[in-house]
């Protein structure tokens, strides 16, 4: 009876479609965050002089409550997936960029000296030595971002982005405890799952590249 009810609920509120929608936004946001966060991290590493300013800005963005950040973006970007993805990226740049920069700086002086003394250019040192050795740290940053993004995408349901936030809102506004329970648990499980996936990637990177 319970199973039957769960199935009906799942179908009535299009939870399969919502899940796919949710994961689509999540994936786009995550990939953009990694690309931009990594690029910013490398930039900060290369322009040490400005790292203070960069981190001050990123830290300020980070202190905004996520729901506030999301609604602030609406006047500029409208409603839907765009402000949601933007908020995800703004939030995730800091952990990814910070970890990338820490990882790049943390490569031991011995290895850098060895690389330079056999004639690697700065670019080759970065590409062949620093970046590979920073990958475990980068993965650590991505792991934090995964948790952030899963939360913000869910909030995106509030601003018309779709995804699993929608049935959650429906459940809250129409007082349907079963729906709240099902979609809430489901989002939580997804977050745990993706965190686990990235954690295992981080672990294998650590075995191959780990210097920490």
């Amino acid at each position: 009876m319970m199973d039957h009810g769960l199935l009906l609920l799942w179908q009535d509120y299009n939870l399969t479609a919502r899940t796919l929608e949710h994961l689509a936004i999540f994936s786009v946001a995550l990939l953009l965050s990694i690309a931009i966060g990594f690029a910013v991290g490398v930039l900060i590493f290369r322009k040490k002089k400005y790292s203070g300013i960069f981190f001050a800005i990123l830290n300020t963005v980070e202190t905004f409550p996520d729901i506030a950040l999301l609604v602030i973006l609406i006047p500029f970007l409208g409603v839907g997936a765009v402000p949601t993805v933007t908020a995800c990226v703004l939030y995730s740049i800091l952990p990814i960029a910070r970890n990338t920069c820490t990882g790049l700086s943390g490569v031991s002086e011995t290895h850098i000296r060895a690389a330079r003394s056999i004639g690697l250019t700065d670019r080759e040192v970065l590409l062949h030595i620093r970046i590979p050795l920073a990958l475990p740290m980068l993965a650590g940053g991505v792991r934090i971002a995964v948790v952030f993004i899963m939360g913000i995408v869910t909030l995106g349901g509030l601003v018309g982005a779709g995804g699993l936030g929608v049935p959650l809102m429906t459940g809250i506004f129409n007082n349907i405890p079963a729906l709240i329970l099902v979609s809430g648990t489901w989002v939580g499980l997804l977050a745990v799952l993706f965190d686990g996936i990235v954690a295992s990637i981080e672990k294998s990177l650590n075995q191959r590249y780990g210097i920490w």
Binding site: A114, R116, I118, G119, H128, R208, Y209, G210
Partner: peptide, 18 residues
Amino acid sequence: ALRRSIGYVIQEVGLFPH
């Protein structure tokens, strides 16, 4: 170019761990 024309060995070796 100079360093690529010269081999260099140090006590700490500095093999790349990855």
